[in-house]
């Protein structure tokens, strides 16, 4: 860093002895010999950077002791007034309400389904292409399989999550509190809707599966 006011720190640290009068005053102004002091430099000690600005003495805990800065940035620490105040909705996951649940729930499910389906598609694409195929053909086969399997699983999982969270939020609003029955009912309706064009038996199976999954999930969130 170029300190614009006066010489650098190295010059002031090793100030040469003042020149005596019987020696010829040789002032070499060539840029190669930076140790030689010009008269303007030797007249007054140049200002230094204040020591409290150096990095090792910078202690955030001393800046404002009440602010709790020494604990680091608590980014995921939602304050109490931002949290959802619905009775019974406090789990181990911080949430601002049903829209937070919807976004994070569907995002997690969608990305999880995408990753899982993508991995399955990757394995499938590698298996289907012969080992002697050129790399470009192999890449194309893998990409085709990934883009067929990944979005399908991701879309299905994401839609289940959206439907579950919407019904869960509706039940919460309707009953003005949250408990496991809301979750299980939302899961049941989601599962029934998901297979609603396939007939009674698949609807019942899918609804039972989703209701069980919702019950397990709400037990886990309340237990931790």
């Amino acid at each position: 860093m170029v300190w614009p006011f006066g010489g650098s720190k190295r010059d002031t640290g090793s100030l040469p002895a003042p020149v005596t009068s019987n020696e010829p005053l040789v002032v070499d102004r060539a840029p190669t010999t930076s140790d030689s002091t010009t008269p303007s430099e030797s007249k007054s000690p140049s200002p230094e950077l204040p020591t409290f600005l150096s990095a090792d003495s910078f202690d955030v805990s001393k800046l404002h002791p009440l602010a709790g800065l020494d604990k680091g940035l608590e980014a995921l620490d939602l304050e109490d007034d931002a949290l959802s105040d619905l009775p019974g909705s406090k789990g181990f996951l911080p949430s601002r309400g049903w829209s937070d649940d919807l976004c994070y729930g569907s995002g997690t499910m969608y990305m999880g389904g995408l990753a899982l389906g993508g991995a399955y598609g990757l394995a499938e694409g590698l298996r289907q292409s012969p080992t002697s195929a050129p790399a470009k053909l192999k890449l194309n086969s893998v990409l085709n399989a990934v883009t067929r399997r990944g979005p399908f699983l991701g879309n299905s999982a994401g839609i289940l999550a959206i439907s579950y969270n919407v019904f869960n939020g509706l039940f919460d609003v309707y009953r003005s509190y949250h408990d496991a029955y809301n979750s299980i009912g939302a899961g049941l309706i989601t599962g029934i809707l998901y297979r609603s064009t396939k007939g009674i038996k698949p609807m019942a199976i899918s609804g039972a599966l989703m209701g069980t999954a919702a019950g397990v999930w709400s037990y886990l969130t309340s237990a931790i």
């Binding site: 620490d77 976004c103 994070y104 569907s106 995002g107 997690t108």
Partner: peptide
């Protein structure tokens, strides 16, 4: 704490879900 938008790595999930 910011109440409107979460910090960076985790907001990706939120954006995925919201856009979806």
């Amino acid at each position: 704490a910011d109440h409107t938008r979460d910090p960076c790595p985790i907001v990706i999930i939120n954006d995925f879900g919201g856009a979806f």
